[in-house]
Nucleic acid binder design. Structure first.
Lengths: 156, 156
DNA sequence: CGTAAAATTGCAACATTATAACCTAAGGAC
DNA sequence: GTCCTTAGGTTATAATGTTGCAATTTTACG
């Protein structure tokens, strides 16, 4: 589901929460209230959210939260693979297709702010080329692109 | 000059400084002492350097420096295109081939720490594919890969 | 030259993002 | 229940980056 398009966002959220829950079960990990709520907040939309924004929302909702609370929850969710960090924005965004290790690549629309995950296949292809041509053995990669998404191009 | 290989690093430095100077002349900009020194420090090696590390070195050398001093110099050098920022490391590294706009892509070796710039052609190819397949009009991009460089693979 | 405008730097304070250390509480195993 | 592990609360602090303003230097130009 490209973030740039109209869609039933409730579906995004319930899918993400379901996936996270079953990943936890598989691995014997706990989806606690704070972790669940942080994941829901990250999934409020497809825009990357800062840790302190999340913290403010938690506090409003009555969670007794301080920075470590949020960062610990985010670390857990990153580790679980259901959230990614976008380092050029110091912000976090939900993962479209968790459940298997994959490199992160995002297209961030500077108009609507949505971050859409790039297909792993394209990233993989790039890695193969770089290995073949330059001998780089890539263990992980992070790609952050900005520009206009198809939707915003059409309506501008 | 791939950063991973043995090389005459003085040559890297003098080339970088010369290029920066002529870019300034072309554009009517000033290569002041602080800016020059920051660029030299960034080019001490091929490892990304943090702003506060640069600041510490400047201070040691008797520059009356505070954070804004370094960040302003870095902004200038980034704008000039002779330095790049690696956001996953909050660090800065010299640019191999300044003088024309280009997207940044780095391979960072987790053994030796060197950051080698990826060939613009590969980045461009990726962008074209993403535009064709997904309609993303990419204005800028930042690619940060980690792994083992050819050199470190050989000697480990 | 001399002066005004612009660019650069010095400086102090502050903002934002992230982590450390230590303790308490909750949940599961036996 | 008791022990052990994990999670969260709390305080403080580290690391990175920015704002605003004054002082200085450089440049432009009459």
């Amino acid at each position: 589901m490209p973030a740039s398009q109209q869609h039933d966002h409730n579906h995004c959220i319930t899918t993400a929460m379901d996936t996270a829950r079953s990943l936890c079960e598989e691995r014997g990990l706990r989806m606690t209230p704070v972790r669940r709520r942080v994941l829901e907040l990250v999934w409020q939309n497809h825009k990357p959210t800062g840790a302190y924004d999340l913290l403010a929302q938690l506090t409003e909702e009555g969670f007794n939260s301080a920075p470590p609370t949020v960062y610990r929850a985010l670390d857990f969710l990153l580790e679980l693979g259901v959230v990614h960090r976008i380092s050029s924005l110091n912000a976090f965004v939900g993962c479209d297709h968790p459940g298997h290790e994959h490199d992160t690549g995002f297209f961030i629309c500077k108009e609507c702010g949505n971050a859409t995950e790039l297909p792993a296949s394209e990233i993989k292809k790039l890695h193969e080329t770089l290995l073949k041509k330059f001998g780089f053995s890539i263990e992980s990669s992070n790609h952050e692109l900005t520009g206009l998404c198809q939707n915003c191009k059409a309506t501008s």
